[in-house]
Amino acid sequence: MSADITLAGVRKQFGRKVVLDGVDLTVAAGESMVIIGGSGTGKSVMIKCILGLIRPDAGSIRVDGVETVGLRGKALAAHQSRFGMLFQGGALFDSLPVWRNIAFALAGNAASRRAAAIDNLARVGLGADVADLRPSELSGGMQKRVALARAIAARPEILFFDEPTTGLDPIMADVINDLIRTLVTDLKITALTITHDMASARKIADRVAMLYQGRIVWHGPRGDLDTSGNAFVDQFVHGRADGPIKMPVRTL
């Protein structure tokens, strides 16, 4: 089962800094949407607003047509229970072994939860031998895979991926991209990924949207990325310093 997400005029500012300046975006049920954009453009803030971790200053966020801005208490908890999230750094709990991390949100006795954790480890290509290790004993790529197993363990309707390939070598990044694509297809999940890794975007996305200065400046199918005709997208996709996107670089 999957769910659709609609953002309309979402605004958020911290102090005087406007991070989201009227974001409009629709993610269809079962679709894999990738948001691209440079560092500090508000990508993480946007998904935290959808998750209910940050409350937007204005605008509407609907999941399956139900308004989620302003939810509190049990309603907010029910809303959040529909999501799984892969955090940029994994965000694994250092004090718990791998299997307890994965089974954290699962109900049942220890044996059944451990079995479920090992099943999910297998889904991300890891063996039962890592189940009793601590996160600090794993490589960066393995930590990402464990975090992915944790994100899918409770079979969420919507999965968020925050920079899933950051800090990984190109081969491990491709492994993670393949895993995400496979999981999203197999589990029929609505996926929203934020990244500035174009290889990742091309592999994961059904549709791509670009966030710049707190607004969606372009969105379209993955196949249109190279022929978008949008100067912002062209500059970002080709990684050029020259173009409408100006980096705040101070000369010495």
Partner: peptide, 12 residues
């Protein structure tokens, strides 16, 4: 390290 946000997304 976003572990507190992770707790929230894990219904805790």
């Amino acid at each position: 390290t976003e572990q507190i946000d992770a707790l929230t997304t894990l219904r805790t």
